[in-house]
């Protein structure tokens, strides 16, 4: 129980006990609370296979993924391909295979492309959450580790935390958990996810290092509010972020709308300033150039 890792390295190729699909494992992608995810090939198709250490939690996760997919037009999350057992070292392990989602982790992506992208990506996240919420689910474990960006689109990946609205949140991470910040309980409500989005936004604006420093401080809302006030990028979006932290939004759409409004008003404000900036720069440099010219001509006259 003390470890979420599998006790042995998985075999490179294996077939499922029930459905006989054959898998070739290519590499490990990462470990979640309920098991390890591998990149594999099955019938020439690239898939992600999650092999569980706890068969119950893994099956529940597959169950969630299946329930979320019942709505074909509005599918959120990777497609569930196969659920089966794998026999090795005399034990049976449950696993499920899903569509392989390519991408870069949200925080790494932001670090590469810059903070300007954060609000845009958050709007996308809120759109995905809105669909999930409409279907009666809360994502639960919203954090950068569970979101991938590919082709400038975000994808939610780990569905281990998905919980029915009104229930207790199945899985969470303290950094993004409303109860750990003394801002409410762990009931699966839309506002629980929105709180996590707000903290995630703060975390992305600060960057890994600064965020790690903040993690040691007292976990309550005033700490977060101070950070927002002191950070230039964050303070521009303080209104929607603080409203989400205090649970003022009932739906993801509402938060998205206000985030978009802030984004728009910011964009409209920027070009004028930027033009002014470049113009100032040119006037300044022309002035310096003319001074130099004056100096050199004076020098020549003097000689």
């Amino acid at each position: 129980m003390s470890s979420n890792r599998l006790p042995l390295p998985v075999p490179v190729t294996f077939s499922g006990k029930w459905n006989q699909k054959q898998y070739t494992i290519l590499k490990e992608l990462g470990s979640g609370a309920n098991g390890t995810v591998y990149f594999a090939v099955c019938n020439g198709r690239k898939v992600a296979v999650k092999i569980g250490t706890d068969p119950f939690d893994l099956l529940m996760e597959a169950n969630m993924l299946k329930s979320v997919q019942a709505h074909r037009q509005e599918r959120i999350g990777p497609e569930l391909i196969d659920v089966d057992d794998l026999m090795y070292a005399g034990r049976s392990y449950s696993y499920y295979a899903m569509e392989y989602v390519k991408g870069e982790r949200l925080d790494e992506y932001v670090e590469r492309v810059g903070a300007d992208w954060i609000p845009v990506l958050m709007v996308q996240v809120l759109n995905r959450l809105a669909v999930l919420h409409r279907q009666g689910w809360v994502f639960g474990d919203v954090k950068p580790d569970n979101i991938l960006v590919w082709n400038k689109q975000v994808h939610l990946i780990d569905f281990g935390g998905v919980s029915q609205i009104g229930r207790a949140v199945r899985q969470f991470t303290e950094d993004y958990d409303r109860a750990s910040w003394q801002a409410g309980d762990r009931r699966a409500e839309r506002s629980y996810d929105l709180f996590a989005v707000a903290v995630m936004m703060i975390c992305l604006f600060l960057g890994r290092q600064d965020w790690d420093r903040i993690r040691c401080q007292v976990r309550h809302l005033p700490t977060l509010c101070d950070i927002i006030r002191d950070n230039k990028g964050l303070s521009l979006y303080s209104e929607p972020i603080i409203k989400a932290l205090y649970g003022k939004y009932v739906t993801a759409e509402e938060m998205k709308r206000e985030l978009l409004e802030t984004l728009r008003s910011r964009v409209q404000a920027t070009p004028a300033r930027k033009d002014g900036g470049t113009l100032d720069f040119w006037i300044g440099s022309l002035f310096v150039a003319s001074l130099l010219l004056l100096a050199s001509s004076l020098y020549y006259l003097w000689m």
């Binding site: 029930w18 068969p55 099956l59 169950n63 299946k66 659920v83 089966d84 229930r167 207790a168």
Partner: peptide, 21 residues
């Protein structure tokens, strides 16, 4: 239960979860 096909076990897991909650 281990001898049940995975799809059935997924259903059992759902029921266990419901009872637990």
């Amino acid at each position: 239960v281990v001898d049940l096909p995975p799809e059935k076990r997924v259903q059992v897991a759902g029921m266990v979860d419901e009872l637990g909650e």
